[in-house]
Design a protein around this nucleic acid. Structure first.
Ligand code: MG
Ligand code: MG
Lengths: 654, 654
DNA sequence: TCCTCTAAACAATACA
DNA sequence: TTGTATTGTTTAGAGG
């Protein structure tokens, strides 16, 4: 960050920096500035600099309180997703294969490869537990009660942790040994000298961060610590659900008729769950959150993701700050909301969302704060998220956010929209740190919280989530057309260097891993229709195996609940096929910017304007609501123009 | 307001209003609540109710001291703007016709009507007086000296004035007779019964106000009375400058190398200037500040603005409390700072800013105090405004605020940002008073100060400012493309009823006149680069005439300094063309919500984070900073689906 | 056409 | 009260 920002642009400003110094002045608080810096000693100096659109204040209160979110809680949403997949609604995969309904009545789809267009899901409202329009809204009553048994997660203690760099190193190392032969080859790191300087500065910031990361647990976290768990759920229950994952279990969906209601994902309350045992959570003493080799068992080395020759896919986003997580902001928000913080109430504060994200995605700990802007933007704009005002007498900063049952239902019901896949972005700031990362140095924690004692979302959880998303998203588009249009058509024929093209790219700069899809279900889970997507899970497995399995060295039995499905599907794909792909992809590390566009996925979560506008065309409304199942029109365009051979994948898929 | 807030939305809150009363509670201090009301008897009860986010304390210190600001002072900024426009930089109109520069180098504009793309203004930095980066910052030294001759303005005396209602009535009447045939037709006032009640309450408050309006002259006004004028300026000088307005006068910009320095706008010290003779300043005895017919000569009746059939555009915001002034808070602050209170020192107290605003904008006298929050927020956040601590020995509440020369320069240099155009908002509270206004009743003064003996900013001043803003904003996009892309493209082809779509409409509620743009120059004027925008002024005039002239009944010769430019431009537009448009627009008063989107304007004033980012792609930097002149990509989408015919406007423009 | 993301403007609100 | 920080809303535009 600093290096990016402090260089030329603010040179003219520097002279007066000392004079009328104000924290807000761009570059004023730049880490390059020795004197004021450290953001006025604000809590968490994770932020590199106050980005253009970003007010410095956005960075305050980002502090160390992230530790509040425990591992089990964090992984809960993963299980939730599994359960969502689990929930059978009797739909056949074909049904699930939804098409984006046109919200506008006479909305004509002019375009390319309309994957599947079989109308369906109009009866979504009729599905068990799918009439949430009038579902009782969770009253904004706070439940500060923290079940003693179920909240091992909530430990505000911020133990000294290693710098994220260290974590990343470990992660990389693991990746190296397991998935990639040389994920971060020295030679592949094409960074300049200044980069090193920047990295040093970043580390220095981390040090500063170390000093400040304990101050900022504000009252906004009130809900964060008020994880109200459903007593009916036991730590074993999630396991139960987990076990049923692979099979087409009878409908459980209607067990959760209420939004954020009874059938809350047990993840938060089951610290002892298999996921809790996630390697990432039980790293070495120095790197508590460091993922073990097992975490990368199914790691993919997707060529496109790697700007510098590493294989960020399936990376542990919790510890790897270099690659931008492939999740959309809406997904991230949903994840945060699902992660147990919001508890049964299902509502969370913005601050909690920030915390969860920073805790679980190292990328955002280092990225400039624009992402917070985006988060807020998304919360506001996306109808999925509705604000629950704070109780009048209740202190605290903002309101609470919850998922709108209505839209959640819509999402579930299939009113999914496609979304484009942003190019893989690698955080420039982190890139600068790459060298340092390669040469291990133990540093202060970058975010205090996230690294805490393995409380973050395990990489495995990330993997599962991604698989889930892919699967759910894939149901809509997963068909021969998809394979053709998405897999092949989107194949990265080196469309040029989008990294440079992107306006914000230079600014936000972060490296973004290809986004599989934003799972619509993330928004809907607790609602009642956990079931509806059960049928999709088959597609899940199929897609997952196709996408992940082919590139993973280790399909890892226990780690992958999807494998049952693979056989069920009869399409189980041998991971062996990917090996050569992997090997070839290694060679693709030709630069930081590659085009991995043409990456399609479903997105409804993020569609901020769920067609409420334009009253003239209101008629088509019902369609939209009843939409269709999740729409994954985006497949992983791993875009390795060099080594990755599409044929191998396609073969695997077919 | 009251009716807005107390009605349906907060019904559930009302019961507990008395209980845990918090100033922030929505509807808590509603005027409907008979008991607490009157804002705890604080000085100025102009505020109708304590709006949700507002502490009652914000209303303290709003008292009667507003009278400190004299007419001439208040109009000074208007002249200042003229002078700013005046400053020639040798740029041709074509140069001024900036295009939004693509910050990123190889930004390919793929799309629709990219208005103008002719690169220009790169040499802005080289323009005379454009090197203010190191321009001396005005030392925070107070100059309490009040030149006896030049401060007729500063009369702390608070003469008994009419209630703002009366003023409004007058204004309305004037408007009615001059610009609009029926600006506030009785039938068009679609208010409910409760509205009437609210209005009555408001009036009652005004009465209370009458009792309190003398108590609150606090020490914060110390600077208000310290108008230090530059002796080198005479009252005629401004006239001189005024006369050169129309012509591309040789650069005068470098005459004002210092911020707030020598070449201070003579407005404050030239009460006898033409503007001083502004009709608005010389109203009738009862309504000193009441604008005369001339004040409304160029009044526009833009259909979009009118939710109830009135023509609030070009209204006298000093007396018309119904329509929220179209100025951003940053603009308001700049205006207040420029208005002579800060004198040469260029620094003002928050209190003075409050006063100036309330004195000159009746809207804020009646609006809930949230605007003060916003003012403070803006001062804090906006880098344009920097705080000057009070002298240690100097008593007083807060510090002083001045405009940061650096940012001011940037703004001038063309690093402008677009800003969105908020929908026109009509103050519901004032709407409720509409009926009362129409039927004249003499009341107690609502703000003591503003109405004082014509000391407020004349409506003419407002008009000029707006024109200025429009003009400066328009220079960038003003070209055939603009006319096509903006005028036509944005023309409200009945895009639907966005008014309903808008969420915040219910909350902030106030009726906001369409904001043309926040003039960047407002921040920069005195600095030194008064010149750079001179060339833009031609576009100014052109745009102004296009936007304002076309709808105004009277282009008013003497009142409009821009007209010279019109001829200079060779594009003088006949105001006559607008007449029918005006007539038609009158019919558009079909409801409170109309879509006036597609309204583009430049905004940099309020942008707290002036573009300093992106180091990687620094090369293009010069372009960006030197970018272009003010960017008015927003035209008024008055969105009158009914009567407004775009063709008429387009004709006028072309 | 729709979606996602980023940037930004602006406002509201909490709070020191 | 003043000032700052956070939170929330909305618009824009790029890019896909
Ligand atoms: Mg929302
Ligand atoms: Mg400021």
């Amino acid at each position: 960050m600093t290096w990016r920002r402090s260089s030329s642009m603010f040179t003219d400003i520097v002279p007066r920096r000392g004079a009328v110094f104000r924290a807000r002045e761009p570059g004023a608080a730049s880490s390059l500035d020795p004197s004021p810096s450290v953001q006025q000693q604000q809590q968490d100096v994770r932020v590199i600099t106050n980005n253009k659109g970003l007010r410095a204040s956005d960075w305050s209160a980002q502090g160390a309180s992230g530790a509040l979110i425990g591992r089990s809680v964090q992984t809960s949403w993963v299980r939730l997703f599994h359960r969502l997949n689990d929930a059978p609604d009797g739909r056949s995969p074909a049904d699930t294969r939804a098409k984006k309904k046109k919200k506008k009545k006479k909305k004509k789809k002019k375009k390319k490869k309309s994957f599947c267009s079989t109308s369906h899901r109009e009866a979504a409202g009729g599905l068990p537990g799918v009439s949430p329009v009038l579902s009782p809204v969770v009253p904004p009553v706070l439940s500060p009660v923290v079940p003693p048994v179920l909240s091992p997660v909530l430990s505000p203690v911020v133990p000294p942790v290693l710098s994220p760099e260290a974590e990343e190193e470990r992660a990389d190392g693991a990746m190296l040994s397991l998935s990639c032969t040389d994920p971060w080859p020295e030679g592949s790191v094409g960074l300049e000298e200044e980069v090193v300087t920047a990295a040093a500065q970043a580390e220095e910031r981390d040090n500063n961060n170390n000093n400040n990361n304990n101050n900022n647990i504000n009252n906004n976290n009130s809900l964060c610590s008020s994880v109200t768990l459903d007593d009916s759920l036991t730590s074993l229950q999630w396991l139960q659900e987990f076990s049923i994952l692979g099979a087409n279990v009878p409908p459980r969906a209607h067990h959760q008729p209420h939004l954020f209601g009874q059938h809350r994902p047990p993840g938060a309350d089951a610290p002892a769950s298999p996921l809790a045992a996630d390697p990432a959570s039980i790293g070495g003493p120095l790197t508590p959150g460091k993922p073990t080799a097992a975490a990368y068992s199914r790691m993919q080395c997707l060529p496109g993701i790697v700007a510098h020759g590493h294989c960020p896919d399936e990376v542990d986003y919790k510890t790897n700050a270099r690659v931008k997580p492939p999740y959309s902001y809406a997904t991230l928000i949903c994840m945060a909301m699902q992660s147990g913080k919001s508890g049964k109430s299902g509502k969370t504060t913005l601050s909690c969302i920030y915390h969860w994200i920073t805790d679980n995605f190292c990328y955002y700990r280092h990225a400039d704060p624009t992402w917070q802007n985006s988060i807020r933007h998304n919360l506001s704009l996306n109808k999925c998220f509705i604000k629950v005002p704070r109780q009048k007498d209740e202190p605290g900063k903002g309101g609470f956010w919850r998922i709108d049952p209505q839209y959640a239902e819509r999402l579930l019901s299939g009113a999914y929209k496609k979304r484009r896949m942003p190019p893989v972005q690698i955080n420039p700031a982190l890139q600068s740190r790459l060298r340092l990362t390669l040469q291990p140095r133990s540093r202060s924690p970058c975010g205090a919280a996230g690294a805490q004692s393995g409380l973050g979302v395990a990489p495995e959880a990330h993997r599962l989530l991604r698989e889930f998303e892919e699967a759910t998203g894939g149901d809509q588009n997963w068909d021969p057309h998809l394979a053709e249009g998405t897999m092949l058509g989107s194949w990265p024929v080196v469309r040029g260097r989008l990294g440079h093209k992107r306006k914000s790219g230079s600014r936000s700069g972060g490296a973004k891993a290809p986004r599989r899809s934003s799972s619509p279900l993330l928004c809907t889970d607790e609602q009642k229709d956990i079931g509806p997507l059960k049928g999709d899970f088959d597609w899940d497995a199929l897609l997952d195996s196709a996408l992940n399995g082919e590139l993973s060295l280790d399909q890892g039995g226990a780690l992958s609940p999807l494998e049952e499905d693979l056989t069920v599907r009869g399409t189980h794909i041998s991971p062996a096929a990917d090996l050569h792909v992997l090997a070839e992809t290694q060679r693709n590390t030709d630069g930081s910017d590659f085009d991995e566009e043409t990456f399609l996925a479903t997105a409804f979560l993020e569609s901020p304007w769920p067609e409420e506008e334009e009253e003239e065309e209101e008629q088509g409304r019902g369609d939209f609501l009843c939409g269709s199942s999740v729409n994954l029109d985006q497949l992983f365009d791993l875009g390795d123009p060099l080594g990755g051979d599409p044929s191998a994948r396609i073969d695997a898929l077919l």
